[in-house]
């Protein structure tokens, strides 16, 4: 979003404590809550509330930018009056998201494409995004379901981060990526040293170990060229197991489809948008009764082709960051990695 400005410095444990304390003093800080209750992020009021989780957190940070349910405006049906005021959005105080992994940070870059860059901006997304700074943590403990490298992300990817922190054994390397990141660091007034060759070596080893842990069920080469064929017979096979529950889309950090509905109590109401899913038949059902995606086959094909084919045409990007949440949470163990592998092998 701005000119790159990369700078690295070293923090020891006590420096990091001080850094967090000073950040909390001047900003609204959010980190993963560590709980499996939506929205999965919490405001950090004190240092003790910040804890780094292993691998990607339970939920991504999509909840922050695109809440599961959001009021677009309120209205009064009797007077036909609309109230679009929104105190939360009017608050321009800087917000810092800290502790997300590179995959979830990259997902924000992809959501930017949808809500900021393709056409008119989405005011709700834009307001939150503009006041937000992102401090991601390089990933030292990917899970067995992770496949970020296969989709062009990686344990040390810096996409959309203003600052990336590498947590080493007894110290931290802080890498500022953007000018905002640099300002954030400078404003804490910390006096920090550069990074020694020894520490750089420790980081390299950490990232390499992370990479080695990532299972390469499919590789980025498998995604090159014409990877998926709309007419292919495999779609009928792939969807057999799918229940159509949509949990994959709810956990996906890049799935952004939403519904708009009115909620009414008496003469007052509000128009809200809420997450929706292409895995549901109602998603595309016309009022006439016609449905262009009548069965799970078409809906599964839509989800996968949107992520890996259509998004390339629309935004020049694949809408998958390899976080593996769809693999973890699928109730019938439908593993996206195996699906892609099978497709690539033409099964």
């Amino acid at each position: 979003m701005e000119r790159p400005m990369s700078k690295e410095c070293l923090m020891y444990k006590e420096d990091f404590e001080e850094f967090l304390a000073r950040l909390i003093e001047g900003h609204s800080i959010f980190c993963p809550s560590g709980e499996d209750i939506s929205p999965g992020i919490k405001k950090v009021a004190g240092r003790e509330q910040f804890a780094l989780h292993r691998g990607p957190s339970h939920f991504s940070f999509k909840h922050y930018f695109l809440p599961q349910t959001e009021r677009l405006f309120s209205f009064d049906m009797a007077s036909n009056k609309i109230d679009a005021s929104n105190g939360e959005l009017d608050d321009n105080k800087l917000v810092v998201l800290i502790g997300l992994r590179p995959c979830d940070a990259m997902a924000i870059e992809l959501l930017d494409q949808v809500f900021l860059q393709r056409g008119p901006e989405d005011v709700f997304y834009a307001r939150r995004r503009r006041r937000t700074r992102i401090i991601s943590f390089a990933c030292s403990e990917p899970r067995t379901t992770c496949f970020c490298e296969s989709v062009g992300c990686g344990p040390d990817a810096a996409a959309s981060a203003d600052m990336v922190i590498f947590a080493l054994k007894d110290s931290y390397i802080v890498k500022t990526i953007t000018q905002c990141g640099e300002e954030l660091l400078n404003n804490t007034g910390m006096n920090l040293d550069g990074v020694s060759t020894e520490k750089l070596g420790e980081r390299e080893q950490m990232i390499n170990e992370s990479r080695d842990r990532l299972e390469k069920v499919f590789t980025s080469e498998d995604l090159n060229g014409k990877i998926m064929d709309f007419e292919a017979s495999y779609w009928k096979q792939i969807c057999q197991k799918c229940l159509g529950c949509g949990i994959c889309t709810y956990f996906c950090p890049t799935c952004h489809c939403f519904d708009i509905v009115d909620e009414v109590a008496g003469s007052k109401g509000r128009r809200i948008r809420s997450w929706d899913s292409c895995m549901y038949p109602l998603f595309t059902l016309h009022a006439s009764g016609h449905n262009p995606r009548p069965t799970r086959k078409e809906r599964m094909r839509q989800r996968i082709m949107h992520k890996f084919v259509y998004s390339m045409e629309q935004y020049g990007r694949r809408f998958c960051v390899g976080c593996g949440r769809c693999v973890i949470h699928c109730p019938v163990n439908l593993d996206l990695r195996l699906v892609i592998k099978e497709i690539a092998e033409g099964k």
Binding site: G119, F258, I260, T284, H286, Y310
Partner: peptide, 19 residues
Amino acid sequence: LEMRMKCGIGMCGRCNIGH
């Protein structure tokens, strides 16, 4: 063409035909 639509501005994601 007709499609089920919500936002009308290319964000809600449901009215696509391919890309």
